[in-house]
């Protein structure tokens, strides 16, 4: 019995665990091993995910499960993504989809964002969640590595309305040695597919002298997909197997990014405290239209929102933004 959720297409016959260890064969079908179990259910700011072009300044409920189909050497959440999912069960939160949506509303969140690990680990649970969330008017977004099969990518598109996709590198050598996958081709295919119908932002962690040489090539690919796709270039925060690695040189990477800003208008460089490359500039007149603080690793926040509706206050050009900016984003607390 083959699992077709991700490109590994693991054979789960006879109790084989598969790469992610999150699915099993049962009764002639693929079954989720730990449905409705969550590693996180906490409110945060949408910039911290990061989403810079979705309801700026809004409060979101951050959820995650466990497990991953990648083995990134620098994983920031290895204690939940790489750990044997059986071992972590006792400290997981157990919520039905309706309870997750209720928690979101109790904390005044208009959106729920799947973060922490890979959503492809928990497809059936997330499908249920999407159904409840939709009926309650709560939108869903996610961070994903997009290493899903074509059919599973359609599932992702049916569950989530906004995505931040990790494009970690292009070369097969990099992907083999640092990510543990043979090729980035399925990811490129899925970025193209999801960006066609959903709001997509892309994140790329940069390891100096390893994948920084691919910046322009990645920018050109993204511009071909969508000339206004927001791109978050992360300074690698060395963790897990790369904990002893050198912190990448900020000025050098910032300099390299200067040249790709002529290819893509919304290029950000962050994941370190105090970054000055987190503001949104109007592609028409270069005015600062959204200002942010960078607090590094999952801590960014909105500083000021200058757009008039969705337009530049100076030249009126439309700025890429998902969501009605007139909404009272953070006033949705409800009682029981």
């Amino acid at each position: 019995m083959q699992c077709n959720y991700c490109e590994w297409r693991c054979d789960l016959t006879g109790g084989k665990p598969g790469v992610c260890r999150m699915y099993e064969e049962a009764g002639g079908a693929i079954r989720e091993r730990f449905p409705h179990r969550w590693s996180s259910c906490i409110s945060s700011r949408i910039e911290s995910i990061p989403f810079y072009h979705v309801r700026p300044g809004s409060r979101v409920l951050v959820i995650g499960t466990m497990g991953c189909n990648f083995s990134c050497r620098y994983c920031s959440n290895a204690f939940i993504a790489k750990e044997d999912p059986t071992i972590v069960q006792e400290r997981m939160l157990q919520f039905s989809p309706a309870e997750v949506v209720r928690k979101a509303k109790q904390m005044g969140c208009w959106s729920i964002v799947f973060n922490v690990n890979e959503p492809a680990m928990s497809f059936p649970t997330l499908q249920e969640l999407a159904e409840v969330a939709r009926s309650e008017g709560v939108s869903l977004g996610c961070l994903t590595n997009a290493y899903t099969t074509e059919e599973a990518t359609e599932l992702l598109a049916s569950i989530f309305s906004f995505f931040n996709i990790g494009l970690k590198g292009l070369s097969p050598t990099f992907n083999r040695e640092h990510i543990g996958i043979p090729s980035a081709e399925p990811i490129l295919r899925n970025i193209r597919r999801l960006a066609a119908t959903r709001h997509v932002e892309v994140t790329t962690p940069i390891i100096e002298s390893v994948n920084d040489g691919e910046l322009e090539q990645m920018a050109r690919f993204l511009a071909d997909v969508d000339p206004e796709i927001p791109w978050h270039v992360f300074r690698l925060l060395p963790e897990d197997e790369m904990k002893e690695a050198r912190y990448p040189n900020v000025e050098k990477i910032a300099g390299a990014l200067d040249s790709v800003r002529s290819i893509l208008p919304y290029v950000y460089f962050h994941n370190f405290v105090g970054s000055e490359w987190v503001n949104t500039l109007c592609p028409g007149c270069d005015s600062v239209v959204v200002e942010r603080f960078s607090l590094g690793c999952g801590g960014d926040r909105l500083k000021a929102f200058h757009c008039v509706e969705k337009g530049c206050p100076d030249c009126g050009r439309e700025i890429r933004l998902l969501g009605d900016v007139a909404e009272q984003w953070n006033s949705r607390e409800v009682n029981r």
Binding site: W38, S39, S40, C41, I42, N77, F79, I80, R91, M92, L93, F95, K103, V116
Partner: peptide, 10 residues
């Protein structure tokens, strides 16, 4: 106490 929040680290 275990509340809705992170269950990340043991």
């Amino acid at each position: 106490f275990k509340t809705a929040g992170g269950a990340f680290r043991q």
